[in-house]
């Protein structure tokens, strides 16, 4: 039995001259929160639509929970989705919106009241959805997706348009879902900071090509930390560090940045410079953000990504 909630092989889609998705092989483990990252227009939504059989792929195959995907196939009963904003019928109350889906699902495992509680929308359940804020509509959309107790939840930019408080609420909700409901979450976003905080696995898509795929933790482990130094004589500090085998670089603010492997290196450099008579005004280790890697991968294209693979990123670089 497959332990992959989503598996694609050579999934591709072209719209006219534009190759929206170029033969990607996704592998999403069951129980994961998979962050599917990419800039706008990278092909994330098209990929999700193919995973839901909303769009026919030109090539490739999709397997969900080990079963091949077909249009209106029974496997879709185990998938919840929120694609490009929530589906909300404004003339109905929140509860009635869920009732529409409940009737479609027959006798779903969860009642509308239960999922409304999960997304903390009970108080507004009997208000017309036209009066809901965008955040409430997003939560209602999530409640709709959860109604059938899905094994897999496909969320396309679920924090789009939300204010900071709404983003935090949605993030907490998403993080809690695998443990609470045993659901695998596939989450697309261009908000890297969001994915960084919730994902256990990451896939990075650029111009339809999967640049990176693997565990988020492994990715973090491979990202180089930097020691940031400020001193009155950066030129001398630069010479000392370079002579000592480090690889310092000057940044635009007159600071020095030195790639290090951790706090021990920072202590070593601090001692060394102090003994050499260079007084430090500032010393800090900066953990690089996913943005750095993301921009590196997407701006430099797949060639750079392939090069990075030789450097040993965890996961499958395409």
């Amino acid at each position: 039995m497959s332990c992959l909630a989503v598996e694609t092989r050579g999934l591709a889609k072209r719209f006219g001259e534009v190759q929206a998705v170029a033969g990607i092989d996704l592998r999403v483990p069951s129980g994961a929160v998979y962050g599917f990252l990419g800039p706008n227009g990278a092909g994330k939504t098209t990929t999700i639509r193919m995973l839901l059989s909303l769009v026919r792929p030109d090539a490739g195959e999709v397997r969900l929970m080990g079963e091949p995907l077909r249009r209106s196939g029974s496997i879709l009963a185990r998938v919840g989705s929120l694609v490009e904003g929530p589906v909300v019928y404004p003339n109905l109350t929140g509860r009635e919106n869920l009732e529409v889906t409940r009737r479609l699902l027959g006798a779903p495992p969860f009642s509308p009241a239960q999922v409304l509680a999960t997304v903390e929308l009970e108080d507004a359940a009997d208000r017309c959805a036209s009066t809901y804020s965008l955040g409430m509509k997003q939560r209602l959309g999530l409640a709709r997706a959860l109604l059938g107790q899905p094994a897999l939840l496909l969320l396309d930019e679920p924090t789009n348009g939300l204010d900071p408080a709404g983003i935090r609420e949605m993030r907490e909700l998403i993080v809690s879902l695998p443990e609470k409901l045993g659901v695998t979450v596939f989450l697309s976003s261009h908000l890297l900071a969001e994915v960084e905080q919730v994902a256990t696995h990451i896939g990075i898509l650029s111009e339809g090509v999967l640049c990176y795929q693997g565990e988020a933790q492994g990715l973090w482990g491979r990202l180089q930390q930097q020691l940031v130094l400020e001193c009155r004589d950066p030129g001398r500090a630069f010479e000392i560090l370079a002579a000592d085998g480090w690889s310092p670089e000057r940044d635009g603010d007159g600071r020095l940045r030195v790639p290090v492997s951790g706090p021990a290196d920072a202590a070593l450099i601090n001692t060394h410079l102090t003994k050499a008579g260079v007084a430090l005004d500032h010393l800090a280790i900066e953990r690089p953000h996913l943005e750095d890697l993301f921009l590196d991968l997407t701006q430099n294209g797949t060639g750079r990504a392939a090069q990075s693979n030789q450097g040993g990123y965890h996961g499958n670089l395409q």
């Binding site: 639509r49 839901l52 059989s53 909303l54 249009r71 209106s72 196939g73 029974s74 496997i75 879709l76 009963a77 998938v79 989705s81 694609v83 490009e84 904003g85 589906v87 909300v88 019928y89 404004p90 889906t101 479609l104 699902l105 709709r144």
Partner: peptide, 14 residues
Amino acid sequence: AGGWRHLYATDVPR
């Protein structure tokens, strides 16, 4: 409502 993407992502025949 953009409802098609919800309806067609179910196991109900289109």
